[in-house]
Amino acid sequence: MVPAPKHAGAPLTDSDLADAPLPDALSGHWVDTRAPLWLRPYLKLARMERPIGWWLLLLPCWWAAGLAAIAGGRPFPDPWHCLLFLIGAIVMRAAGSTFNDIVDRKLDAQVARTRGRPLPSGQVTARAAAVFMTGLALVGLLILVQFNRFTIVLGIASLAIVAVYPFMKRITNMPQFVLGLAFSWGGLVGWAAVFGRLDAPAYLIYAAAVVWTIGYDTIYAMQDIEDDVIAGIKSSARYFGDWTREAVALCFALAVGFAGLATWFAGGGIVAWSGVLAFALHLGWQVSRIKGATSPVALRIFRSNQYAGLLLAAGFALDALTRAAI
């Protein structure tokens, strides 16, 4: 809870701001309840109390790792790679979010959901945030160099998309497409880490992740439509308007189609296809719920994509295990 000021109209102190959970944060998260007060603004810059972001960055990595295990006849995705992907997703999501907040701090101050973030609220200076981001990026580099040379170059190449994304909401009605290009990069990296090259399944699972990202981030953007209009922020939710449900349905249908093609080209069996089906059913459930969804409902539907993505990742991993056991 936000501590009550000592008297009506009194400004919130730095301690009050650090204690206050952000609107889209998990309730009662350890960042808001147990972390040291001085550290909380940096943990919030890193989105640690909103883990859905790093899950969505991680899952395409695990999808590709599972497909690579199927195609390579391995009994399971490489555990070391999957651990590196997990750590890398948390660290690089934190670095990317910090960069995004540095660029967007003035816009964030105009949106109800984001004006309490560390930068627009003044808890952290832009310079301190830049130093924090640099440290995170160096940790990410240490993780990246554990892979083969092709994967290292591929990972570095993603930074160009990450760098331009924060500016897209000022330029295009579909910044979610650029976000998809960045957040889905793991679909390429997960495959390259095993084979040292890119093949059809990698490109197809990357495409699946891109359109999936457009779909789920459109649902996320439904929370901010009114404030975005006032602030002049562009988004797919604003662009699609009354056709948002149909647009999300199309994105999700394409995601399932590309995931199915990736499964086919990788040589996936019935368990992998069961994962694709479970993924499709979950996405269909989301589409059935978004018409006229309030902000809290839209946020819950958005967060549920963690489970949709895990269903697909589990299908690929279990298919590799099942085929190896036969």
Rank of each mutant, 00 (worst) to 15 (best):
W38C: 02
W30S: 02
G53V: 05
L58T: 06
V31N: 06
P36H: 01
T33R: 14
M48L: 15
W55A: 04
L56M: 15
V31H: 05
W63A: 03
G72D: 12
P36N: 05
G28I: 06
R40H: 12
M48H: 07
S27L: 14
R47V: 05
P23V: 13
L39I: 03
A35S: 07
L57H: 07
L26K: 10
P36I: 08
Y42R: 09
L37N: 13
G66Q: 10
L59C: 07
W55N: 06
T33V: 11
A35C: 10
Y42Q: 07
W30F: 11
P36Y: 05
L67Q: 00
D24F: 12
W62G: 02
L56Y: 04
W63Q: 03
A64P: 07
A69L: 02
A65N: 03
L22Y: 07
L26D: 09
S27V: 15
P60Q: 11
S27K: 15
Y42H: 11
C61P: 08
M48K: 00
A68D: 03
K44L: 01
D24L: 14
G66I: 05
A71Q: 11
K44H: 10
C61S: 15
W38S: 10
L26F: 12
V31P: 10
Y42S: 00
W54N: 12
M48F: 15
G53E: 09
V31Y: 06
